[in-house]
Simulated assay, not measured.
Amino acid sequence: MKALTALAGLIGAMALLLGGNPAARAAEDDTKIALKLFGKQDIESDLGTCRFSLWQDDRDPETDRYAYLFHVNSGDRGYAGPARVKIGDTVHQLFELAAGGAASNEVAGHYLYASDNREVRVHIEIRSADQSGEDNRISDAVMTVIQKGKVPFVAIAKGVLGCGGQQTASAAPAYQPDARAPGLPNGIPIGRQTLLNDMSELPPVLVQLMREQTGDECDVDGYHAWGGARYVINDYYLLWEVPCISAAYQAASVLAVTENPPRGWGNLLTLPNPPGISGEDYQAMNADILGPKGLVRTTALSRGVGDCGRYRVHRLIDGPGEVLELELLEYREKTDCDGIEMAPKEWPLIYQSY
């Protein structure tokens, strides 16, 4: 608080010194961060079921056209990011650098985001939050925006962090996991996704292993709509998504590990099936990687309308012999393609290991 008070005093003194001179006021404008509010209709990927959103404390995002200061979808579409803030006419994409500090209701007290070039940084301090279902409702937060060559901009905010989505009290209740298991155990954290421009950026050893080991499961040399992705695990390992198949309504990748940086060694990760379902496979269908939790969710649809198929959750763990592997946590399957659509995580539970 002392730092914020001192900053406010500094800005006020600058305003008094510069206020009477038009040229000086123009110079002052050059030092200001032109932070802009935006609405949910401005978020290209729509509000996710899992999200971290902040809005100006005197605005209501449900009724005000412009209310949001900061927004990032997470969980339901993979690792959190990119976040967005709007400065002037530019929407900046930010990625999480760190989270921690004193917690409020199991929510970290501090979050730091930055653009890839570090030109824009956002520090968020959550001072009060209360749990409401799967959401943490943030009643008091301070958001500080730092841009190179500008005076930091401080905003008081409210918001939400969690996976409750946009349901209201009258909406259908959120899925409740099996009473035996209060929640999914975390795996080894996975860093944020870096998309590859094309498959030529994949380590050659992984492409060769795909040809040798995946057989008819994959067509690594065929057409793929994307080039794959890379994730940092730690100073020793990288995780890769290698395109496997691209079909009409779904796609599969293979998860693989190399040294960090790659040096000619690689290992393809298999996805175990539950007891009673034979074998393992390589296909991570429609993979959803929850980076901070170290989880990988896959959904294999039996047909395009998405009313049947199988859903698996694995976590990344240390295996024997200092290798990484995937452990099956949950397996669900809906075999009746009856036209009734529901979230895959609500399909009948076949197996649960936690």
Rank of each mutant, 00 (worst) to 15 (best):
M1F: 12
K2A: 12
A3W: 14
T5C: 14
L10P: 01
I11K: 15
A13H: 11
L16D: 15
L17Q: 14
G20D: 15
P22V: 05
A24C: 02
A24W: 15
D30T: 11
G39C: 09
L47A: 12
L47G: 07
C50R: 01
R51V: 10
S53G: 12
L54I: 00
W55Y: 04
W55L: 05
W55S: 06
R59A: 02
D60N: 11
P61A: 00
T63K: 12
L69D: 06
S74F: 14
D76V: 06
D76Q: 09
D76R: 02
D76S: 15
G78D: 10
G78F: 03
A80L: 09
A80K: 04
G81T: 10
R84Y: 05
V85R: 12
V91I: 14
L97S: 07
S104H: 15
S104Y: 13
Y111C: 07
I126D: 06
A129T: 09
D130A: 13
S132L: 14
G133V: 13
E134K: 12
N136Y: 15
I138H: 09
D140M: 02
I146Q: 11
Q147M: 14
K148R: 15
A155R: 05
G159T: 03
V160P: 05
G162C: 00
G162F: 03
Q167D: 13
Q167N: 08
Q176R: 11
Q176I: 13
P177I: 02
D178T: 07
A179Y: 08
A179E: 11
P182Y: 07
P182T: 09
P182E: 14
P185D: 12
P185M: 04
I188Y: 04
P189R: 01
I190F: 04
G191A: 13
G191N: 12
Q193P: 07
N197L: 15
D198C: 06
M199F: 03
V205C: 06
L206W: 00
L206Q: 08
V207M: 11
V207Y: 03
V207P: 10
L209T: 06
Q213E: 15
D216V: 05
C218Y: 07
A225I: 10
A229H: 01
A229C: 06
A229T: 05
R230M: 13
Y236L: 14
Y237F: 15
Y237S: 13
L238R: 14
L239N: 10
E241P: 04
A248P: 02
Q250I: 05
Q250F: 05
A256L: 07
V257N: 08
E259R: 04
E259K: 09
N260M: 08
G264A: 00
L269F: 01
P272A: 02
P274G: 00
P275A: 00
N286D: 14
N286P: 03
G294C: 03
L295A: 08
V296N: 12
R297F: 15
R297M: 14
L301V: 10
R303D: 12
G304L: 05
G304T: 09
D307T: 01
G309P: 08
Y311F: 13
Y311W: 14
Y311N: 09
R312P: 03
R315E: 07
L316R: 01
I317L: 01
E322K: 04
V323W: 07
E327L: 03
E327D: 11
L329N: 05
L329D: 06
E330N: 04
R332M: 12
E333P: 00
E333H: 07
D336M: 06
D338E: 02
E346I: 00
Q352W: 11
Q352R: 12
Q352N: 10
S353F: 10
S353A: 14
